[in-house]
Design a protein around this nucleic acid. Sequence first.
RNA 1: GGCUCCGUAGCUUAAUGGAUAGAGCAUCUGACUACGGAUCAGAAGGUUAGAGGUUCGAGUCCUCUCGGAGUCACCA
Length: 616
Amino acid sequence: MQLIESIQSQVSKAVEALYQSTVPSESVLVNTTPPEFAGQYSVVVFPFVKLAGKAPDAVANEIGAHLLAQVSEINAFNVVKGFLNLEIDSAYWHAFLQKNVGNAHYGRQPNRREKVMVEYSSPNTNKPLHLGHIRNILLGWSCSQILEAAGYDVVKVQVINDRGVAICKSMLSWLKFGNGATPESAGIKSDHFVGDYYVLFEQKSKAEYEAWQQTAAAQAIFAEKHKSGQSEKEFFKDYKNKWFNDHSTLGAEVRDMLLRWEAHDPDTLDLWRRMNGWVYQGFDQTYADLGVTFDKLYFESDTYLLGKDIVEEGLAKGVFYRQDDGSVWVDLTDVGQDQKVVLRADGTSVYITQDLGTARMRYEDFGAKRMVYVVADEQNYHFTVLFEVLKRLQEPYADGLYHLAYGLVELPTGRMKTREGTVVDADDLIAEVKRIAREQAAERGEIDAFTPEEQEQMLHTIGMGALKFFILKVHPKRKMIFNPEESVDLQGQTGPYIQYSYVRINGLMKRVQKEGVDLTISTQYSDIQPQEHELLVALHEFPTVLQNAAREYDPSLIANYCYNLAKSYHRFWHDLSVFNAHSPEAKAFRLQLSKGVGEVLKSGMGLLGIDMPERM
RNA sequence: GGCUCCGUAGCUUAAUGGAUAGAGCAUCUGACUACGGAUCAGAAGGUUAGAGGUUCGAGUCCUCUCGGAGUCACCA
C-alpha cells in the first residue's frame, strides 16, 4: 500500500506548496473510486477548500496536476463534483502482481515479538456445547488467526468451568438414576450422556418442588410471605431458589456432594473425574469438527481459590477496603459504577476474585501484555469492573485487556431456553449443515464422481463453510438472529459462494499446469478492463483490511471483504474470457490475476477458519 | 430507576464523517453449441425509529423522545 502513502504525502506537499497550509499526510483521505467514474483511487479535497479559498473543483484540479507531475504511477486524473479521481498506470499493476502473486504471506505482517492471549469457549462441564458456544468459538479462533497474521504470537487458552453445583447435579443424578450406565453402554456421545443426567436432575427437582408446594408447610409459607395480589404460581416461581436451598432433599444432596468435593473425598473426586472425562471426550470431538485448537487449558478447579493474595495486596495499596463484617470491597462510584464485593466475610472467593487471580497467573505463565476475553456481552459489567480493578492494582498488563463482547444468538422465536428445549445443540447443527450440503450436491449429481472419503471431506468443508461464514459475517457486537434455514443456504452471500469462486480459479490453475501456459508475458497487456481494475484494487486493499480487522478484533471485516472479492471475481469470470482471451498477453494477465484472487481468498477465508475445497 | 448496547428494504445485513445508503434471501424477468449455472444481468423494494444540533458534507458525532435487549447477587 505504499502507493496510497505516496499519494497522501504528495497531496500534503501540494497543499503546502499551493496554499501554504500544513496538512498531515496520514489525514488525507484516499478512497477507492466508485465504478461509475474513471480511475481507481479518489482524493477527498473538501477539507482543503477553506484553506485554499477556492471552489472544490479548482482545488481538485490543482492538486491533481501536482500529483500527475510528482507521482509516476498516476496516469491521468479527472474531477467530478469536487472529487479528484486518479487513474493508475498499468505498469504499476503488473509490478504489483509480479511481486505478490505466489507470495503466501501477502498481507501478513512480520512478527513483532509480542504475545497476545486469547481466551475463548469457556464451557461448563455439565452439558454439551450449543449454538452460543459456536459463535464464541468461531470468533475466538478467527481473532486468534487474524492477530497471528498481524504479527503477534498468539496463545489460545480455554477456561473450563469444571466444578460447582452444576456438575454436582449431573453427578448426583447419574449416581441415583444411572444404574452404572456409560456412554458406551447407552450408545450416546459422551458429553450428551452427561448432559442428559443434568436434564434428568432438573426434571426430578421440578417434580419434587411441585409435590412440595402441595404440603401444609409450603402452603403456610405462601400464606405468610406472599405479596398482596401475588398468585400462588407467581410466588412459587420466585421462591424456587430459596426452596432449593432450604427445603429440597435433592438440593441438600447436591450441596452435600459439593462439600465432599471440596473436602477432597476420594469417591466423589473419582466420580467427578470420570464424568468430566466423558464431557471432555465429547468436547474434543466438537472442537475437531469446528477445526479449532487450544494451546493451554485452565481448569476452574485449579484456579477457584486464586486471587486472595491480590485482595490482600489491594488492601495494603488502599485499592480495597474492609467492612466491619470482614468482607472486602472496591468502591468504583467515582467511575460511575457500584461498590463491589471482592472477598466474602468468611474469606472465600467470589467470581471476580478468581478472575483477578487467573489474570495474574496467566501473565506469569506467558508474559502476554495483551489479553482478549471472548465472552458474551451479558458480562460487560463484570469485565468493566475486572479491568478497572486490575488497572487500579497497576498490573503490568492492565492496559492491554480487551473484552471481545459479542451479542447473544437468538432464534427467530426468541432467546434459547434450556427449560423450553429450544437450545440448538452444536453437534446437531454441524450434522444438519452437512446433511444439507449433501442433499444439494446430490441434486446436482456432482457427488457421484467422488469416493466416500472425498465426499465426506468435501461436504464437511462446504457445510462448515456455510455455517462459519453465516456466523462470522455479522459484526460481533451485534445481537444475532439465527435462522437455521438460512444458515445452511449455499447460494448468495454465503461461504460456498466464495468457495465456488475458488474452485473456478482452481480449475483454471490445473489447466495452466497441464498446458504449461507462460504467465510472464502479461506485462505487455495495458488495456485493463473495469472488472480487472476492481479485482486489482481489492487485492491491493487486503493488507489494510487485515490490519483493520486485527485492530478492531473484528472477523466480519474479513468475511465481508472475501465476499466482495468473490463477487467481483464471479462478475469478471462472466464478462471476460480467460483462456479464450483476445491476446496471449491478456490471457496471461488474467490467469495471474485469477491466481492472486485465489490465493487471497484462501488466505482470507483461512483467517475465518474456513477451508477451500479443490472441487465441489 | 442507574449504567451499557442496539434500531438501516418484508427478512438477514454492509457502509475508517465523503459521490445516487451497498449486498443477500424472498418476489418477478432474463442469460451458456465459450474456462463449472452453488454463477451472471435486470425489475421492484429505503423519510437509515422520530425531532433538533454540529459540519462544506451525518446512517455514522452531540442532545432529547420513542422502541428493544443486557446488566445492576457475598451465582459463575
